[in-house]
């Protein structure tokens, strides 16, 4: 397997670019660099992002700032119980002038789609997202329409509001590459937000554009070229296997999530300018990529066991891969 020369060229500016994007977004989402970094990685890995958090911590702002930094089109869908699938995908309307049905694309036809409070919509509407997220296309009226490139769904859900929500089906939640949460800002960040006179809580729409669409494509291909050694791939598979056999877990990692884990680790490696994945990369993204896909044993859900604790346990039970030395 030869390293593509292009990668070597791209990776150096990749990390610089990555840093400048994170810095750009961080001017509106303060003190959350790691969450912002994961969101950017998610974008360059062609993944979808689920942000689970309490209202008002800047979920939507993050998504908007992300799109704006890359100069991408951003649309927002507020999910409500009465939202219909066609409200998402778009409808064909009869055009009297042309005497034919014309398709009016829904808000999903954008690069970054913010699905706000996704768990408020009915399962029927949620499933409309499914095809779009996985196939990156929308089928209506026997016609399949491709979605723009790049395409990323940033869904938010509020964990505390259980009233009037539909839990996301497992098939759909598996399509999100990562789940992150922002959490409250620390004291300094929150004060800076108040202080900076519109600068900190500024409008993401006024952010400077750091990269263009072509750069995003270059970054996506650069991430794909990051090298994952055989022992490292084995490590990922062993982690996945450990989730499937762990006594506390009813439903472990899917093969899709194994793929996502490797991809996310590649993205993280690229973001530091490295052309190869290390076990640290995998461990860093492990919880974000896997936690939302895990279904605990029912008895443990009742006892309030934390998924993260179990994931930590799994990390500790799997041997970190090593290069082979000839001796011992």
């Amino acid at each position: 397997m030869d390293r593509q020369p292009a990668t070597a060229v791209v990776l150096e500016p990749f990390s610089e670019l990555f840093r400048s994007i994170v810095a750009n977004v961080a001017t509106v989402v303060r003190g959350k660099d790691s969450a912002v970094g994961l969101a950017v990685i998610c974008l360059v890995c062609e993944g979808h992002l689920l942000i689970e958090d309490v209202p008002g911590v800047g979920k939507t702002t993050l998504a908007k700032a992300l799109a704006r930094s890359f100069g991408l089109e951003c649309r927002r869908i507020q999910f409500t119980p009465d939202l219909l699938p066609s409200d998402v995908t778009g409808v064909s309307l009869y055009n009297r002038d042309t005497m034919s049905f014309t398709f009016r694309p829904g808000p999903i036809f954008a690069n970054v789609v913010i699905a706000d409070e996704i768990n408020r919509a009915s399962p029927k509407t949620q499933s409309a997202l499914l095809e779009a997220m996985q196939e990156r296309q929308v089928s209506t009226d026997d016609t399949t329409r491709p979605l723009p490139e790049p395409f990323m769904v940033v869904a938010t859900q509020n964990p505390v509001e259980h009233e009037g929500t539909y839990p996301l089906p497992e098939s759909q939640i598996d399509r999100f590459m990562m789940r992150i949460s922002l959490g409250y800002p620390d004291k300094g960040s929150e004060m800076a937000m108040l202080d900076s006179d519109g600068g900190g809580s500024g409008d993401p729409d006024t952010l400077p554009v750091v990269a263009d669409r072509a750069t995003v494509h270059a970054m996506i291909s650069a991430v794909k070229a990051v090298y994952a050694a055989g022992s490292l791939r084995e490590y990922i598979v062993e982690l996945a296997g450990a989730t499937r056999h762990h006594p506390a877990i009813a439903l472990g990692m899917s093969p899709r999530s194994t793929l996502a884990l490797q991809r996310a680790a590649q993205g993280l490696a690229a973001s530091t300018g490295r052309s190869y994945v290390t076990p640290d990369d995998v461990k860093t993204v492990f919880s974000s990529v896997v936690a939302h896909r895990i279904v605990l044993q029912p008895s443990l859900v009742a006892s309030g066991t934390e998924v993260r604790e179990i994931l930590h346990d799994i990390e500790r039970s799997v041997r970190v891969p090593s290069g082979r030395t000839p001796a011992n």
Binding site: M1, A229, S275, Y276, T278, P279
Partner: peptide, 10 residues
């Protein structure tokens, strides 16, 4: 360097 030896291509 050790990680590079273990995981990098070259």
């Amino acid at each position: 360097v050790a990680e590079q030896a273990a995981f990098a291509q070259e």
